[in-house]
């Protein structure tokens, strides 16, 4: 029995659009946000959930957190069907929607936290301890008495995250939690999530467009596109499929002679730099280097692997998303 089991989930929305001509009539279009999505997640897993905008990621998170009712299919999260047993289900989960606000805008965040404490029936001592721990990890100690409206975007994001973790949820849904965070906060947040996952065994489902987040945190990724699940497995394996090209930057003392280079590699000139892109499958790296050395007297050389964002962009393109 897995912790989360999802089977054949379907959800569609009706979107009404204004017609190009006229002002009164509308066109109806049905958008299939999820089509026959099935997966399972075990306790203590940290799973990345990726896909282009509008792929259905948020929709699935909303269904799993009991906000939306799917058209068909079933799900079991920790023994509950989220949309049928909402109140019992949500007691044990934490949700962060990076785009929305849960804390009260006008009052100090500590007051919001105390309200959450009562809502989730967290015992006072446990709450104090947990808040101290969270405030420390998320750098919030000096902000507890500041109203949310006076905070910067990054501070607000951290405050929101703290609010979702106060009741020590067994399962955490993070929908773009690193929006608006600076580098330091981002690293800190990742470190914190890793700790939560390792020490507390919190199961985490992370949705984000920041591939660095995924690479740093998740061993397993699920790719969603047009409402369908396209990949479920390890991130390195997924990347290896699309990581078929290497790039080398070289600079020569004098104009080099590239006539010996095979046609399969591409050559670009950027000032004094030459950028050579090739596929190690057709021409092995050792051979490539030998050819480049023959071309002239080399001044400097750097090799680059493909940026993860480029790989994902290529994957989306090839999957026709």
């Amino acid at each position: 029995m897995h912790f989360i089991e999802v089977e054949h989930l379907n959800k569609s929305f009706t979107v009404r659009k204004k017609r190009e001509k006229g002002h009164f009539l509308r066109e109806k279009t049905v958008i299939h946000a999820l089509q026959d999505v099935s997966f399972s997640i075990d306790k203590g897993e940290l799973v990345g959930y990726i896909g282009p905008n509008g792929a259905g990621k948020s929709t699935s998170v909303k269904i799993l957190s009991g906000i939306l009712t799917p058209d068909s299919g079933c799900a079991n999260v920790g023994g509950f069907t989220p949309w049928k047993d909402r109140k019992n289900h949500v007691q044990h989960i934490g949700v962060v929607f990076g785009q929305r606000m849960q804390l009260w805008w006008d009052v100090p965040i500590l007051d919001s936290y105390q309200l959450l404490r009562d809502i989730y029936k967290v015992e006072r001592n446990a709450f104090e301890k947990r808040l101290e721990e969270l405030a420390d990890a998320l750098d919030l100690t000096s902000l507890l008495h500041t109203p949310l409206r006076l905070m910067s975007l990054g501070q607000r994001m951290r405050a929101e995250l703290c609010g979702s973790l106060l009741h020590s949820p067994k399962l955490l849904f993070l929908d773009e939690p690193t929006i608006g965070l600076d580098a330091v906060s981002k690293l800190k947040l990742r470190e914190f999530l890793q700790k939560e996952n390792k020490e507390k065994g919190t199961t985490i489902l992370l949705t984000t467009h920041d591939m660095e987040d995924i690479a740093a945190l998740c061993s397993r990724v699920m790719v969603l596109g047009h409402g369908k699940k396209l990949y479920d497995g390890h991130l390195p394996e997924l990347l290896a499929r699309y990581d078929t090209q290497r790039t080398i930057n070289v600079r020569y003392d004098a104009d080099p002679d590239f006539s010996a280079l095979p046609d399969s590699c591409s050559l670009q000139k950027d000032g004094d730099n030459y950028i050579i892109t090739y596929a190690p499958e057709t021409i092995p790296t050792a051979e490539m280097l030998a050819l480049l050395q023959k071309a002239g007297s080399m001044q400097e050389m750097t090799a680059q692997s493909q940026n993860i964002d480029h790989l994902i962009a290529r994957m989306y393109k090839e999957m026709d998303l």
């Binding site: 909303k62 906000i67 109140k87 949500v90 989960i93 949700v95 849960q102 809502i119």
Partner: peptide, 10 residues
């Protein structure tokens, strides 16, 4: 924003 309210055990 009501999405958050729905995630509360209330």
């Amino acid at each position: 924003g009501i999405a958050y309210e729905l995630c509360r055990p209330v």
